[in-house]
């Protein structure tokens, strides 16, 4: 079971809310889909500038692996207040720990309405239905 302290998008991003801010990252499933079995398979991640305002569902960046390039979408609207400085040169962190150390951006939430998002159970069900 994936962590139930956060919400998910069908496009495999997660958002973890703490007070007025939230961390956004991608799930282990997304990392596996982008990889082909090697730690160095994720090669590039393009993240937004601090200060950029994101709408619900907006594409804020992209992540590239040896297999594909995928959009990164925000589950909720808000303003980017921080990007994870550790991952730029060390995308392997996403393979090691996509849930905590592998967060991508931190946003100041414009809304806390999570009613359109999936919870862990819903996300698991989605993955099961796609398999």
């Amino acid at each position: 079971m994936r962590p139930n302290d956060r919400h998910y998008l069908p496009s495999h991003e997660w958002i973890k809310i703490t007070g007025d801010t939230a961390l956004i990252g991608i799930t282990d499933f997304a990392v596996d889909e982008l990889s082909s079995g090697n730690e160095g398979d994720l090669v590039y991640c393009d993240l937004p500038e601090v200060g950029r305002t994101l709408e619900d569902g907006e594409t804020f960046g992209e992540i590239e692996s040896v297999k594909a390039v995928a959009d990164l979408n925000t589950p909720l609207a808000g303003e980017v207040v921080e990007i994870n400085p550790a991952i730029e040169d060390h995308l392997e962190i996403l393979s090691e720990d996509p849930w905590d150390r592998g967060w991508l951006i931190k946003i100041k939430l414009a809304t806390k309405d999570t009613s359109k998002l999936l919870d862990a159970e819903g996300y698991e069900a989605l993955l099961a239905s796609q398999n």
Partner: peptide
Amino acid sequence: LHAAPVTTPVGRLDEGRAVK
């Protein structure tokens, strides 16, 4: 399969590093 190819002048290339 993981070791392939073994018959070529060079073996499995590090595609991630080739990009980075």
